[in-house]
Structures are given as structure tokens and as C-alpha cells.
Design a binder for these strands. Structure first.
Lengths: 199, 199
DNA sequence: ACCTGAACACCGTTCAAGT
DNA sequence: ACCTGAACACCGTTCAAGT
């Protein structure tokens, strides 16, 4: 409105920032490039100077989201470094809490068809990093002799599937989020590992 | 639903049938009412005689999908009625296999934002039925004294989360489906219950 | 070099009008 | 009663033209 100025230089970053806001607040289904351009006060064709297409912008936004996700997992990972079992449990809780707090972001990262078209090489590093936190934690548990199962890969996938599935069920409101207190999450995550740990 | 033949005889059902085909083959993201109409050879406004809007058609298609899903679970449920532990394992395997075989349908049922707008009351009966198969199976396991955990709800949610999460990871190709043989599925599902069963 | 405006091909949805 | 065609408001994307 007041802004009829020539936008220099920073449009690319502003597209990412405003785009992320809209995407995370409103979800993928109603996300449009034209809305982002309008919100910034630029013509609807302007984004094409900086991004090949709509998906290219979404990939860029996703990259930032993956970093946030990694950070959310890294915190408990380092905090409970010396208590393998607790570390694995806290990792699971952090995963689920991140999903609850960032449902639209989580959907873009894990539940959208877009992902197939995303250039995996771009995001695989940090993605692998997130996964490696889990694998490391499982290794620690096995190494410290706390588990009954010794298969790192199988136990990692098992844990991942569980937190991923519980996150999905909660996000989709198949399970009423209102009922999902911190205590319930704590209980479920502990129960999910219980079978494989010596008591 | 009785139908007078004017143009095609039964446009309503043809919309559901052709719509389901397109939806399940190509996915939600590229699904359009206009394409369905064109494929049938009817004007793009014609569907609005039979459905309030696009989502209304999708809900109808979803209902059919939920029935198929229920049937896929009911088969092992009744087949292994007298072997509680095996019943639960086969139920999990059937869940995962259905997801792999019907990824787009599964996404519509469980992973789309649409679901929130879907009139849950319409689908909750059969949905509850599917869930009750799982709960029944867990109850059987507990009743026959095979498990170390006695909390029906917690154990049901645990099992559901695991198969749901593994399905999601496979569908999203976070895990390479090529590597997911029947043996791997069998192994994972068994491992997921192993901790809670006396050996 | 960066941005605009018109243009094109697609959408969902509504509605007066045709059969 | 069922369907059509025009119309409207939105999309993504391209491109010649403006600054």
C-alpha cells in the first residue's frame, strides 16, 4: 500500500520468510505463490525471478524446517548423552512434541506428495543427521547392555515408526489432541521401549 | 439410490466410480472435478447436481475406501480368531500391506487436511469398526495371559502407532519400499509385539 | 538486473437457460 | 428433473516490455 518502491536484493529472503509464515500457519493446501507476492506487495510474477516454481520455494522453506526439527532433537540428545535409556525416551518425546507444535510443517516434511519431487540430495544431509541421532542413541542403549534386542537397524526403525505413527495419529486428530497430555506422551514413549529393556 | 436415465443413466455413481479411479491412481493433489466430468463426457457443472462440492465427492469415495480397509483387516481377524498373538501380528501385517498397495487411498483416509472437514459421523461407524478389531485382538491377547502389559488402551494405541508409522515411512519413501519385503514386514511386526509377550 | 502487466491454461463454484 | 454454457474469482506459469 505505502510501498511502491522498487524492491531490491532482499525479495528472495522475504519470499522465504513470508512464505514460511503462510505455509506454517495455513497449510500446504491453501498456499499460493500469488498470495505470498501480494502480502509482500510485489507482482505475482516477481517470485519467478528467484525461484524456478512454487515447489522450489517450498523446498527452500522445508530446508529451514528440517533444521528446526534437527535442533529440537539435538537438544535432548546432548542433554541426556550419558543416560542412554533416558536419552532415547526424551528423543521420542521431543519428536512427538515437535509434531504437535508444528503440524503443518511436519506434514510438508513427511506427509506431502511434494517430497518426492524435492531434490533429496539437498536435504538428505540434515535429514540423515536427524536419523543418526536416533541410531546413535539406540547404539548407546545396546552398547550399555540395557536392551534385550541387539539389532540396531531394527530397533531404530521400530522406535522411529512408533513416534512417527503416534505423531501422525495425533496430528490427524484421529486421537483427540486434547487428551494427549505430557504425561500420556511420557507414558506411551516409555511403554514403547519397555519391552526391549531389562528392568 | 434410484436413478432415472436421462443422459448417462447413472451420473452420480459414475462420478464416484471414475472419481475413485482418478483419485486412487493419481492422488489428491492433482484430482479435479473438471477432469472427472470430462472423462465421463459431461459438462463441468454437472457434478454439482449430485454433490455439494468437490469434497463431498471425495467423502463418498473415502467411504468406499474405508470399507475396503475394514475388509482387509477383517480377513486375518477372523482367520486367526483362535490364536490371539498370531491374530494381532497378522492384523498389523495386513494394515501395512494395505497401505503399501493403496498409498493414495491411505493418504486420503489418514494423511490429508480434508479429513477435518469430512463429516466424521458418516464414517465413524466403520472407522470405529476397524479400530475395534485391533482392540478386540489386544483384549484377546491380554485375556489369554500372553502379555506382560495389561493396559488395553495403551497397548492398542502402541500397536496402532507402530504400524501406522511404519506404513507412513514406507509410503513417503523415507524408507525404500524396494527393501521392504514380506519378510521384513513380518520381522518388524513381530518385533513390535515381542517385548510385551511372554516367550 | 529486477520487476510489471498482459496473457494463457487450468481450477471450483454459481446460475440463468435449455432439454 | 437433469444438464449446459457463460461467468466469476482464483490459481501457476510465461514473456515481452518497462525501470
Amino acid at each position: 500500500m505505502e510501498n511502491k518502491t522498487y524492491h531490491h536484493g532482499d525479495l528472495r529472503n522475504e519470499l522465504i520468510e513470508v512464505g514460511a509464515k503462510l505455509l506454517i500457519e495455513q497449510g500446504l493446501e491453501v498456499f499460493s505463490l500469488r498470495k505470498v507476492a501480494k502480502e509482500i506487495g510485489v507482482s505475482h510474477a516477481a517470485p519467478y525471478r528467484h525461484f524456478k516454481d512454487k515447489e522450489d520455494l517450498i523446498v527452500e522453506i522445508s530446508n529451514k524446517g528440517i533444521e528446526e526439527f534437527y535442533n529440537a532433537l539435538a537438544k535432548p540428545f546432548y542433554e541426556y548423552k550419558n543416560q542412554p535409556k533416558l536419552q532415547l525416551i526424551e528423543l521420542g518425546k521431543a519428536y512427538i512434541k515437535f509434531a504437535i507444535d508444528n503440524p503443518y510443517l511436519m506434514k510438508i516434511l513427511f506427509f506431502s506428495d511434494l517430497k518426492k519431487k524435492i531434490d533429496i540430495s539437498k536435504i538428505s544431509d540434515i535429514n540423515d543427521d536427524s536419523y543418526s541421532l536416533l541410531v546413535d542413541s539406540v547404539k548407546n542403549c545396546i552398547a550399555s547392555g540395557e536392551t534385550t534386542v541387539k539389532d540396531v537397524q531394527a530397533l531404530s526403525l521400530l522406535t522411529w515408526s512408533f513416534v512417527h505413527g503416534l505423531s501422525a495419529l495425533m496430528m490427524e486428530e484421529v486421537i483427540n489432541i486434547g487428551e494427549i497430555s505430557d504425561e500420556v506422551i511420557d507414558k506411551m514413549v516409555k511403554l514403547s521401549t519397555l519391552g526391549y529393556f531389562k528392568s
